[in-house]
């Protein structure tokens, strides 16, 4: 369970988050939409610990995480897919997942051998998304869609409890978009809380039972896909008019 209360974050005079309130339960799939500059990515940065809000509370499973480092939050289970790809491009596909597995199992940093369990797990995950033939390829040689898939399965390998997915389909082909949707549906455990930032509301239809709309650093709409889509305020937020 993640809850965010009255979060404020400003850069100089410019308020990015302005009293944002939101919560999500285990197993929920929540889509976050909103115009550019509405504070979506800043919200993710606050939750994952990369920036500290000037005011407000962030609670995860009943405990405040304000003031804790991003790595601490990640080890609690708050995982993140970055808008600009969080993949280590100079490393192989295998190494990218191995880092997540070794961190998850808190392997000794000076251990010299890769465990067979880890190799098997990498193999089965890559098989599921069709990346197994790229096992030893440099991640930088993958296409944009493949990088997204790799980043998602890396979080699955990490066994995150919360998935913060920042535009997971940005810059990928329509075909690959479909594969990403399927991967998100099938590989992310049912009990995990998933928050997805997307500009394409139709992408959320199959994926999210709840949509929240950000505007001006606040959550201004919250409801089911149909409720939000039919709300006249949505058009107003995006186009400044209801006509």
């Amino acid at each position: 369970m993640l809850s965010v209360k009255n979060i404020h974050f400003a850069i100089g005079e410019a308020a990015i988050l302005n009293g944002l309130e939101m919560s999500g339960k285990d197993g929920e799939r929540i889509g976050i939409i909103g115009p550019n500059g509405s504070g979506k990515t800043t919200f993710f940065n606050c939750v994952s610990g990369f920036i500290t809000p000037q005011k407000g509370e962030i609670n995860f499973n009943g405990h405040s995480v304000i003031g804790t480092s991003p790595s601490k939050r990640a080890s609690l289970g708050i995982g993140r897919v970055f808008q600009n790809f969080g993949i280590f491009r100079d490393m192989t596909v295998k190494e990218n997942i191995l880092i997540a597995l070794e961190s998850r199992d808190q392997n000794n940093l000076l251990s010299f051998k890769v465990s067979k369990e880890h190799l098997d797990e990498i193999d089965s995950l890559l098989n599921l998304v069709g990346l197994n033939k790229h096992l030893n390829s440099k991640a930088g040689s993958l296409s944009g869609g493949q990088l997204r898939l790799l980043e998602i399965i890396r979080l699955v390998a990490f066994r995150a409890k919360v998935y913060l997915l920042d535009e997971p389909t940005a810059g990928v082909s329509p075909k690959m978009k479909g594969q990403i949707v399927e991967t998100l549906k099938n590989l992310i455990p049912k009990e995990a809380l998933v928050l997805i930032i997307e500009h394409d509301i139709s992408f959320m239809k199959d994926l999210c039972e709840r949509i929240v709309v950000f505007d001006g650093g606040k959550c201004v709409l919250d409801g089911s896909f149909e409720e939000v889509r039919s709300d006249t305020r949505l058009q107003e937020i995006y186009f400044g008019t209801t006509n």
Binding site: S71, R80, E95
Partner: peptide, 25 residues
């Protein structure tokens, strides 16, 4: 070639992504 080397290489490339995997840079 071990976990420390991998993590170091990763932090040299993108430390935020490494932190997001629970490894303290």
């Amino acid at each position: 070639k071990g976990p420390l080397g991998r993590s170091l290489k990763a932090q040299g490339e993108y430390s935020h992504a490494l932190e997001a995997l629970g490894v303290s840079s």
